[in-house]
């Protein structure tokens, strides 16, 4: 089974998984093709893949590859 690194931990990767699929799996929120959440709220999440930011407009069209190093970040209390 191929894997990716998600936020520093190994995660199984099903073939054809896009960044949008991964964001939905992580946040539990459906993502529109625009990259905005389908529930009309504000997602507040950014994705970096192999040290490059994937703009939300490209989430649905970006397919993950085995071995990708993915960071999913959001706003938290601090500072």
């Amino acid at each position: 089974m191929s894997t990716i690194q998600l936020n520093g931990a190994a995660r199984p990767l099903a073939e054809g998984t896009t960044v949008a699929h991964l964001v939905t799996a992580v946040t539990g929120r459906a993502i529109l093709a625009s990259g905005q959440p389908a529930d009309g709220g504000r997602l507040g999440v950014a994705v970096a893949r192999n040290q490059d930011i994937v703009p939300r407009s490209q989430w649905a069209g970006t397919t993950l590859e085995p071995g990708d190093d993915v960071e999913v970040v959001t706003a938290v209390q601090g500072g």
Partner: peptide, 12 residues
């Protein structure tokens, strides 16, 4: 208001 950026953690 300022916020920090960190890895997404479910249930936060």
């Amino acid at each position: 208001t300022t916020v920090a950026m960190r890895r997404y953690a479910p249930g936060s």
